[in-house]
């Protein structure tokens, strides 16, 4: 464990808590893409299957359980409890155009052709594009609530911090995982446009308005 990965995990944790807070306090999931949340739940479900087969540390296991449970809770809140506030008209990204190519790629490019490893690879690839429905929805609605912007900033920062973690681990531990690094860079690059808007607008107290 290193400081970059720890701050990254905390940023990820903060993002999930911010999203749950937003939904609970506003009793609404307006402006949130349910499709992205389903993809995140799929990412955790397919990545953390080793929860039962390999023990890394208490921290690792506790965080995995937390991520799986909160992602399922988020999907439940969006599609059941606060369903009336779910903006399905703007959440129209065709996720099958993400899941199918990612699934195929996971079969072709992986570290080991075993079920757990292919699922892990699928999860890494899927996570790198899972935010697209959310970014697409924001470009359609043309704006985002401030707390949703904070959620996205924390979520985008987590993987950016993981890139620093991989640099650290490469130089100090000789650890290098090309699949995770490439997917992590793609994932972080997708947030760049949003990061720019967040830093130039939200941090000055303005709302984010995307060119619709």
């Amino acid at each position: 464990m290193n400081i970059f990965r720890l701050i990254g995990d905390m940023s990820h944790l903060l993002a999930i808590i911010l999203l749950l807070l937003k939904m609970w306090k506003t009793r609404s999931c307006a402006g949130i893409s349910g499709k992205s949340q389903i993809l995140f739940a799929l990412v955790f479900a397919s990545r953390y299957l080793d929860l039962f087969t390999s023990f890394v540390s208490v921290y690792n296991s506790v965080m995995k359980i937390f991520f799986i449970s909160t992602s399922l809770l988020t999907v439940y809140l969006m599609y059941f409890k606060f369903r009336a506030t779910y903006d399905s008209n703007h959440d129209t990204f065709r996720v099958e155009f993400l899941v199918i190519p990612v699934g195929g790629l996971a079969f072709l490019v992986n570290h080991e052709f075993s079920p757990l490893e292919i699922l892990w690879t699928f999860s890494i690839y899927l996570e790198s594009v899972a935010i697209l429905p959310q970014l697409f929805m924001m470009s359609k609605t043309g704006e985002a609530e401030t707390i949703t912007s904070h959620y996205l900033f924390a979520l985008g920062s987590y993987r950016a911090l993981y890139i620093l973690n991989w640099v650290y681990r490469y130089y100090f531990e000789g650890f290098f995982d090309l699949i995770a690094v490439v997917a992590g860079c793609v994932q972080t690059i997708l947030y760049c446009d949003f990061f720019y808007l967040y830093i130039t607008k939200v941090l000055k107290g303005k709302r984010i308005t995307l060119p619709a």
Binding site: R5, N60, M63, H111, E112, W120, F175, F176, D177, A180
Partner: peptide, 10 residues
């Protein structure tokens, strides 16, 4: 190259 077979990151 990867050190250990198992993935120790979240």
């Amino acid at each position: 190259e990867k050190l250990e077979k198992e993935h120790d990151e979240l």
